[in-house]
Design a protein around this nucleic acid. Structure first.
Length: 244
DNA sequence: ATCCTCCTATACGCGTGTAT
DNA sequence: ATACACGCGTATAGGAGGAT
């Protein structure tokens, strides 16, 4: 995996601290300005300078949004967008060197989420990205503010961190609770370890880090001891985990 | 200072996927 | 079918931080 790590949630007061933005910008100065702006807002930033490097990120779905120049070394940003949209629906913002009506319309036709001219104030780029992420969040997690989650026999109360399965009350640590909540909230979806590391442990997944497996193992043991069929907390080998 | 809880790191055996 | 590499589950040890 190529690309440069530039900041990992330094400002925990910001609401964006767990969001990862991929900046694909060959222009060093403009790229640097973007990095500093998003970093100050608490985003996790990944940067690369070519479409080839960026492929790894969207194919593995390890970023929340891509901010892409329309002047890449190998191809136009629009061409890269078309490639990306064949395999990924990660939010995609195209940064236009020179605004073009035709390119703008074509970009939206091919699935871009926003088309912004570089002549616009750089803070507008930030605002538009935040707006897209807000919309995505509301769409994906319509009840993100939910305090009570009930999935069949499983009941979870976010305020008290109380978990019960059927009639059995289970005690969970905050991490165990968040892990189970994240999985149960997106029932029947296989969530990648990378995603779970960011959601639950607020850090990036590394190959030899077994912490998440440890927490999952403990959550599974508690639920199974309460009578839950073991196959409901399923491991997808090499992919991630799911709750059914 | 001591104890306790929670988390992380490490090790090891087993399971799974894949190439032959 | 078999061998091998890689991934997973989990036991254990130890560190960090809060409570007493």
């Amino acid at each position: 995996m190529t690309g440069v790590w530039l900041g990992i949630g330094m400002n925990i007061d910001k609401v964006h601290h767990s969001r990862t933005i991929l900046i694909v910008e060959p222009d060093h100065n403009y790229g640097q300005q973007l990095i500093e702006l998003f970093w100050r807002e608490g985003f996790v930033i990944k940067r690369c300078q070519s479409a080839l490097e960026a492929e790894n990120f969207y194919k593995n779905a390890i970023v929340d949004l891509m901010l892409v120049s329309n002047q890449l070394p190998e191809m136009k940003g629009l061409t890269f967008l078309k490639q990306c949209r064949q395999v990924s629906h990660i939010p995609f913002v195209l940064l236009a060197d020179n605004y073009s009506d035709t390119e703008c319309v074509n970009s939206f036709f091919h699935g871009v989420d926003d088309y912004i001219s570089r002549k616009q104030p750089i803070k507008e780029v930030l605002c538009r990205v935040i707006a897209i992420l807000r919309r995505i969040q509301h769409r994906q997690l319509p009840s993100n503010k939910t305090k009570l989650l009930i999935v069949d026999d499983l009941k979870m109360d976010k305020q008290s961190l109380a978990v019960s399965y059927k009639e059995t009350t289970l005690s969970m640590t905050p991490i165990q609770f968040n892990l189970l909540w994240t999985l149960a909230f997106q029932q029947n979806q296989v969530l990648s370890k990378d995603y779970l590391y960011r959601q639950v442990l607020s850090r990036e997944f590394s190959l030899y880090d077994r912490s998440l497996d440890m927490h999952l193992s403990r959550v599974r043991r508690k639920l199974v001891s309460a009578g839950m069929p073991v196959e409901r907390l399923k491991t997808s080998h090499g992919v991630g985990y799911s709750f059914s």
